[in-house]
Simulated scan of single mutants.
Amino acid sequence: MPRRCCMPNCRGNYDNGPKVSVFYFPSDENLRRKWLSAVHRQDWTPSKHSVICELHFNKDDILSSTSMYDPKTGILLTAPLDRRRLRKDAIPSKLPGCPSYLSSHQTAVREDPEIRRGRLENRALQIAIQESVDTHAKMIDAISFDSLDQMKTKLSECEKHSDWVVINKSDSVRLVLLKHLCIKQ
């Protein structure tokens, strides 16, 4: 016989109600207090058999599959669960059959700090790699030439910013490095 939901006005798993998955109250005291607050029943204490059905949770609070990343193969493995379960911080927030002001609108779930850190590091790494590739392509374009005339033009541009002097002849180009040596006596 399936357990019946303990929420007020809920018919989950009753004879004339819908057949639904149910979840036991959490053992963590802080989360348990939040669940009790969400039940909206005065002077009531749940027993070890008390449950709340899936109708009182958001869709993203209920997990029906699990995933694991295999670092050796680089594959994300996903498998369906035999029994659906709740996210570890899920709180019942929907009260069907009750006035709408009793249902709370749960705020967005915060991303796990380790997952967020990894995601941000990966994004920063991708940006750095793309900038490096772009810089390399610009550098190759700046120093590449197809003819002697293009080479002369590029060398004359470089001459303005260096100690090298370019001597252009009709059939050749000579590069001379001028250095100023200070001789101490």
Rank of each mutant, 00 (worst) to 15 (best):
I129W: 08
H40K: 04
S156M: 13
R123K: 14
C98E: 07
I129C: 11
I91P: 04
L55S: 01
H49T: 00
D134G: 03
C53K: 01
P80A: 15
K160R: 15
I143V: 15
L86V: 03
K72E: 13
T153K: 15
K169G: 13
L55Y: 00
A38Y: 00
H161C: 09
V39F: 00
I62W: 07
H136T: 07
L148Y: 08
I127Y: 05
D28W: 01
P96V: 03
G118H: 06
I183W: 04
R4N: 10
Y101C: 06
C6Y: 05
Q106T: 07
S172W: 09
H161Y: 13
D61C: 03
T45Q: 04
I183E: 08
R119N: 12
D146V: 03
L81P: 14
M139Q: 05
C5H: 09
N13P: 15
I115K: 10
D60Y: 03
M68P: 04
K72M: 11
R110S: 13
R41C: 02
L63Y: 05
D112V: 05
G118D: 08
V22Y: 04
I91H: 02
L95S: 02
Q106C: 04
S65Q: 07
L175W: 06
V109C: 05
K59E: 06
G118R: 12
P26D: 09
P71D: 13
C53W: 00
D163I: 05
I75H: 10
P71Y: 09
D89P: 03
K88M: 07
E157H: 09
G118N: 12
I129Y: 08
S64P: 00
R123Y: 12
H180M: 06
A124Q: 11
H105T: 05
D146I: 03
S50G: 00
E121F: 09
R174E: 13
D43Y: 01
I115A: 12
G74L: 12
F25P: 02
K169M: 10
K160P: 10
S104W: 02
S65T: 07
H136N: 06
L125E: 06
T73Q: 11
P18A: 15
I127P: 01
S27E: 10
T78G: 10
R84A: 08
V109Q: 09
I167C: 12
R11N: 14
S156Q: 14
F25H: 05
V133E: 08
L63A: 08
R83C: 08
R116H: 07
K152W: 09
K34T: 03
E121I: 14
K94P: 02
F57C: 04
A90C: 07
S170A: 13
W44H: 01
K160I: 12
Q130S: 14
H161R: 14
S93F: 01
H136M: 10
S147G: 06
T135G: 10
L181S: 04
A38W: 00
I52D: 01
P71S: 15
R119W: 07
R123F: 12
G12W: 11
E159Y: 10
A142S: 15
I183C: 11
Q42C: 00
H136A: 06
R32A: 08
N168F: 12
R33G: 04
T107V: 04
I167W: 07
